[in-house]
Design a protein around this nucleic acid. Structure first.
Lengths: 244, 244
DNA sequence: CGTAAAATTGAGCTGTCTCAATCAATGTGG
DNA sequence: CCACATTGATTGAGACAGCTCAATTTTACG
């Protein structure tokens, strides 16, 4: 059960990888800081790491020496405050940087958690920065991604400050949908959707119970359907109208 | 009333200016894009501009060609959504960049509004970026400021998503207090405080009426007092406890 | 001094939460 | 491969934080 079979991830994120074509993946190193994942899948070649679902990839308040990119699976960057209150700052999809925020910081104020089993590549922070400064192309690409993330954070502030539960949830679904659509992951009007209602609750500042009620309403109005780990979009225009 | 008397701002932000000592102020240019402020104070020398209270400095959805720093007065960066709903993303105090977000972006998705009369310096975006890349020192200083702003945005997400009205307001007051304290602007346990209850409401996602009720509660508990445009801290520890 | 903007207060209302019970799905060990 | 344990989803009843509306007072300012 432990290291008996080697986990060989499909790396579905490569086709939408923000670093694609920049030749940075060769930089990836195993800097050996992470604990080996318990009870399963062994670490493998040059800097590609894996983590099981629901486990922490990087934890709050640890020093930052690495930069990472998500190759496969979903993750979330989260911030915990006292006793159980926890906010998801953003969902991270395959091909996205796990640690944009860490690029120019030395301390981590948030943690990164795997939602599904994930595989990711780890880079040495200073090596990565050097590569970034050496090439205008790379720099621009990284900064564009950083800005986009920043922009999404600002949108989230507006959502949490100004919009109702229904609006927030509709927008979250549409946001994820759009991102996956961009990287060609929509098939049959459906996407893989590993989020539990609790994840949506933690991201929208609502309770899981109420999220469930809103989703049921969406289902009754034939806007979406969620079965197993698949989200199917039944009426995207109507959903957009719900998103205000 | 118009250009009859020249407005000569005290530029209280210089002592806490994030660009202080970097020699960038000489870069400041008047790129002549802003309308001259109506009904008052004339624009003056090289790149130093002014705007009246409650007016827009940069507006949403306009192209970005400049970078600016706030020399004097308070401003807010805001994002409007349909019909009157508006969210303040952050308050900008003297010495802070007005347009960090614009450094690597070409379009503006938010606007910047003067709360008090303000004076600010305008830089040409590409010139500013060149100066930034020419000096590691400047680059680091800018990116540190950018990161700090980003960090505050994430905190805001947590506040809006997880905390009660009382907690949000207490934290906002403490945040502003701490920032002004850092630049030595606390005198007699008091600070200049030009915010109206509506500003606090727009920043915390609450209504002005309810903000008023919470502030009254704070006053009754002798935590703070707000008279005129001055905020006096009566019991900061107790206020911190309210901030959770 | 007069008008406009901001703050205060009160009475009701509602969106979202809490708690709790039940049911479905998923995973685990024998 | 089944039985059980765990995790997640659904539903309902009741509570409350924060909202709306509206009237009144206070403060700011030309």
């Amino acid at each position: 059960m432990n290291n008996s079979k080697t986990y060989s991830p499909p790396r579905s994120g490569c086709d939408s990888c923000i670093l694609d074509g920049l030749g940075l993946c060769n930089l990836a190193i195993d800097c050996g800081r992470e604990r080996p994942p318990k009870g399963g899948r062994a670490n493998i070649t040059q800097g590609e790491k894996t983590q099981n679902a629901k486990r922490t990839i990087f934890s709050q308040n640890e020093p930052v020496e690495t930069v990472a990119i998500l190759c496969d699976g979903w993750a979330a960057s989260t911030l915990r405050i006292s006793k159980g209150r926890k906010q998801i700052l953003s969902f991270l999809l395959p091909g996205e940087m796990l640690t944009f925020r860490a690029l120019f910081e030395s301390g981590r104020y948030h943690s990164t958690e795997a939602i599904t089993p994930v595989s990711y590549r780890v880079f040495d922070q200073s090596q990565f920065r050097n590569a970034m400064f050496a090439s205008q192309n790379i720099f621009d690409r990284i900064m564009a991604g950083y800005s986009e993330e920043r922009c999404r954070a600002d949108q989230m502030i507006v959502d949490l400050g100004q919009r109702s539960a229904t609006e927030r949830i509709a927008r979250l679904l549409l946001d994820i949908w759009t991102r996956l659509e961009k990287s060609g992951k929509v098939k049959d009007n459906s996407i893989a959707f590993p989020l539990r209602q609790t994840h949506i609750a933690d991201a929208t500042g609502l309770t899981n119970v109420y999220v469930g009620k809103v989703l049921t309403a969406f289902r009754n109005e034939r806007l979406i359907s969620i079965t197993g780990r698949t989200l199917t979009m039944l009426d995207i225009d109507k959903l957009r109208r719900q998103a205000a």
